[in-house]
Amino acid sequence: MTDEINDSAKDSANPDPFLALISVIHSFITNKDRASASLGLDILAGRVSTLIAFNGDSEIAEDSPMDQSLETLCTDQIPNTVKEAVDHDLTQVGLDVSETVETIGEATIEHTAGRAFQHVITGHVELIDTLGYESAEERIRTEVMDTCKDLLKTGATSGLWESTAIGTRLLGWVAATSVMMRDREDGRNTRYGSLLVLCFPKLLNIAVKSHATIGDLSAREWLRVQMLDVHPVARLINSCYGSMAELTSAAIRYEMRTEQQIVDWGSVAHGWLEGLGRLEQSNLEEMQQLWFGTILYLEYLDAMSPDHVMDGFDPYVQYEVSKEVGQETVERIQDNSLDPLAAIQFIPGRVNPVEMPLTGRRMPIIPDAEKSFNEWLSNQIFFTEGRYAETIDSDDR
């Protein structure tokens, strides 16, 4: 198959070897032959996995024939197979595609084929946004999110830091885009919330506990790590923060617009607190302050928003930071040297954050709030033991 791919790259008269198999699978789907289509997907997964095993990362260098063939397969042909299955009411085949992607993804991880792993995640993540909101498509979307989540955690554990960082940020961005596109009549899919609890905080934990030597950056640099020459583990940490913030922002805006809850806010609070706890175990004080400051801003939004928005988001009764970190974080927010609002205020789901981080238009979620964030912060204190509390009327929370 390697020779066929190289021949196809040299002469367009020679078709890419994956194209024929994909065409056969699509033909089975058109004829509503579910069993044959599923068998075809199994064969595809086996062939791609074998190809990766025999070539590894060295033969899948950027823009090589192998790289281009796998990119087309993973980001175009396989996602289109899901769309074909949906169009022909073969939901199970659409679900089977996630198994195919999982098999291929596991092969890329096993053989440390980072470029191929990136293509696998990029193509599969896009389905979260492009699928519709009928029940069958929601089932497939849920399976896609679960598959991406599991592959990213395995990729991080195996040390594919760069591609995992890219995939993590794309997952948060595309999931936020999908939430922003939903209308009230589209109903709910609570699986988005699982990314804020079981995905991004867990990936942050893996990154922080790695043996990589990474130095702390300024808060401003942490917000734009993708543009800096830093260790890929730092990119993954940034991706976890950016994805947590963007998806949380999208969920709040969805509730403000539709008056429907799309995530469990108690669980989301736990996800943010888990991330803070992991950062407390690191030497990344600037990122810890940025993360903590964002939690404070989310508390502020909870206090200022209507009762039905962020119902159950109560991190203040659970988290602890040192008195020094708490006070310094507040002081830096108030003197504008720390900006935890940015990642929440940029409209979610716009410009690709991997290519252009924090680019777009900032739009406050509650533009006419009765108190500014700084005014609200002025009514908070940090006790000696580090537990956060209010000094005044708790009804404002």
Rank of each mutant, 00 (worst) to 15 (best):
L203A: 11
G132Y: 14
P315Q: 07
D76F: 11
V24L: 12
F382L: 05
N374Y: 03
L171A: 11
F383R: 15
H308C: 05
V86G: 12
C148Y: 00
L284A: 09
V120D: 05
S98P: 00
D314Y: 05
T103W: 03
P306A: 00
M145C: 04
A234T: 10
R350A: 00
S8H: 14
P340F: 03
I344R: 01
V230G: 04
E259T: 05
D89E: 08
R188T: 15
D7S: 04
E102C: 15
T30I: 02
W376E: 04
A342F: 10
E110H: 00
M66G: 03
V325Y: 03
F383K: 13
R332S: 04
G187T: 06
E246Y: 14
L152F: 09
H231W: 09
Y300R: 06
V208I: 15
T294V: 06
I262G: 05
Q92M: 09
P348W: 12
E285K: 03
P306W: 01
G159L: 06
D67M: 04
D396M: 07
L284W: 07
R47M: 14
A136D: 15
V120C: 10
L19H: 11
R184N: 07
A251H: 02
R188K: 15
A53L: 14
E390I: 06
L73H: 09
I29N: 03
Q118G: 08
L298M: 13
D335N: 12
D186F: 03
L51W: 08
R34L: 08
I104G: 08
G167T: 07
M181I: 05
S135D: 15
T130N: 11
V230P: 00
P17C: 12
K149P: 00
S49E: 06
V125F: 03
G386N: 11
I22L: 08
R387P: 00
L127K: 05
S239D: 11
N189D: 00
S98D: 01
C240N: 14
A212I: 12
E59C: 04
R188E: 13
I29K: 03
K10I: 07
D57I: 04
I252M: 01
D339R: 02
